[in-house]
Amino acid sequence: MSLTTLMEHDTKSSEIMAPSFALVKRVIWETDDTYTLLIDPPAENGGGFPFAPGQFNMVYAYGVGEAAISISSDPAKPDQLAHTIHRVGTVTSALSRLKRGDMIGLRGPFGTSWPIDEVVGKDVCIAAGGIGLAPLRPVIYSLLRRREKYGRIVILYGARSPLDLLYRVELEQWSKARNTDVIVTVDRGDSSWKGHIGVVTGLFSYVKLDSPSTVAMVCGPEVMMKYTCEELQRRGLRSDQIFVSLERNMKCGVGLCGHCQFGPHFICKDGPVFRLPVVNQLLEKKEI
């Protein structure tokens, strides 16, 4: 046999397919169907869980299965992990039944991260839709922690209704940071809602982006990202100033199972965060 391709190089072991177990410290219901699990990192990690903003874990519900869930906690606090999870199917429902003191399976962190170093000295526009705010929260924490290193920060966030808004208290706190705008909109409001109603792209009317020095990070449903990226470009950003986080079916998280392919890319290892020009053409086509 030819051993040339069988050298181990720097490859990592597929032992990673087995989860480590971690303690659920708290369950916070953000909305009717979305909850945040606060988790103590697995004991074998020595109390920490280093990750970069935008990375995800494969989160395991005992005997039921795994789902790829982005990490939504502060990277500067690796002793306290958070996952914000939308309850939609069997795995996320099983996870939703966990209580304080229960154990949860974790594998990770996997994938690429938001360009946190590239944006030093620049303006940052963060546009999130729905649960898409969760993968962006670690970026927001990081930016605000070293607020002086960045220019203006604009956070645009769209949700289905006022009751579907995530991290309401924090949104309020973030808006108080220096030179930081937080603008929230909902698709459906009622008379008790005094904020914006309309799609997230509509919020760009209320902010003036200094396009040459702005980097945008976008996460949400694919349609929302598509329109948001178009709007950003209409406002003068080049596509290489825009980053998106994509979602696909993931079974292994390490580029071996083939499920998350998006053209030549494996979303789990080449993504989930991509610079827009890398995926833009594929995003324009249907069912890639």
């Binding site: 030819s2 391709t5 069988l6 181990e8 990592k12 580029g255 071996l256």
Partner: peptide, 11 residues
């Protein structure tokens, strides 16, 4: 061989 042993993670 390339698929399973030459990437970031190996099988």
């Amino acid at each position: 061989d390339k698929v399973f042993t030459a990437g970031e993670y190996r099988d």
